[in-house]
Simulated scan of single mutants.
Amino acid sequence: MAETTQIPPDKVRVLLATNYRLGHTEYDIILNIGERAARLADLFTSSGVTCGAFLTAYNPRGAIQSDEANGRGHAELAAMLRDQALRSIEGSGSDEGTEWPAEKSYFALGLQLHAAKQIGGRFDQNAIFRVGLDAVRKLIPLR
């Protein structure tokens, strides 16, 4: 990660180790940092987009929140994506090697970087994940 960040190194390590899953079926697409996701590239092509962003409203600033607070944020994020007429796929991010709970998320197809950063900032997130035409997940720090 070339950008400087105020995110503590231990949180950056967790963000990088986390697997991000698009969908909740046997056809899920799993995004690993630095690895090309061929199925996501195919989805970009069939959807007529060249990028997307993985967004969550869970646990702002990496601080555990109640299930109720996380649920409200997740619903607000879903409404925001709908209002912007963005096709999104619900998913989750989790690191099976830690006790950190899985975080519900959305992958917004076609969401440009500037808009993705604004949404991540609106939900007080440390970072977002962006995927460009190369179909490789990249960490974008927001602090």
Rank of each mutant, 00 (worst) to 15 (best):
Q112H: 14
G97E: 11
G73F: 01
L113W: 04
L31G: 01
R143V: 15
I140C: 09
N70L: 03
A127D: 10
T56Q: 07
S92K: 10
D42M: 09
D83W: 04
T25L: 08
Q6Y: 10
L109R: 03
A115T: 14
C51V: 06
F44D: 00
G73E: 03
Q65Y: 10
R39M: 09
F123H: 01
E35F: 08
G120E: 03
T50R: 08
I89P: 02
P60V: 04
A135R: 02
I89E: 06
S47T: 15
Q118P: 04
T50M: 11
G93I: 05
R143Q: 15
R82T: 15
G121S: 11
Y58Q: 03
T18Y: 02
Q6F: 11
L81D: 00
I119V: 15
V14W: 05
G71D: 07
P60W: 04
G48P: 06
E35A: 09
E96I: 12
A57M: 08
G23V: 05
P101R: 10
D67W: 06
S92M: 09
G120H: 02
G34I: 11
D134N: 14
A38L: 14
L55N: 03
I33Y: 11
R137P: 00
E68F: 12
L43M: 13
A85I: 03
F123T: 01
T5P: 03
I33P: 00
A17M: 05
A79F: 12
S47N: 13
R39T: 11
Y58T: 01
I29D: 06
Q65F: 10
F129T: 03
G110I: 11
I128T: 06
A69F: 05
L86E: 01
I7E: 00
G23M: 05
F54P: 00
I119Q: 02
D67Q: 12
A78Q: 12
R13K: 14
S92F: 10
I89Y: 07
L40V: 06
Q84I: 03
E68Q: 14
T45Q: 14
R143D: 15
G91F: 02
R82V: 13
G52P: 03
I140A: 06
G132P: 05
G97M: 14
D28H: 08
Q118Y: 08
E103W: 07
E26M: 06
T45K: 15
R39V: 06
R72N: 11
G23F: 04
L15D: 01
I140E: 10
Q118R: 14
C51W: 01
A37R: 01
E96V: 13
P8M: 07
T25D: 15
L77P: 00
L113H: 08
N70W: 02
N70C: 04
I64K: 10
S105T: 15
D10A: 13
F123G: 00
K117S: 09
R61F: 12
G62Y: 01
R122T: 15
E76L: 14
Q112T: 08
A57R: 02
I119D: 01
D134M: 09
V131A: 07
A127V: 10
R130Q: 11
L15S: 01
S46Y: 12
Q84S: 14
D124L: 11
G71C: 05
M1T: 07
A2H: 12
I7N: 00
T56P: 05
A78V: 08
P101H: 12
L139K: 05
K104I: 06
L109H: 04
L81Y: 01
M80Q: 08
Q6M: 12
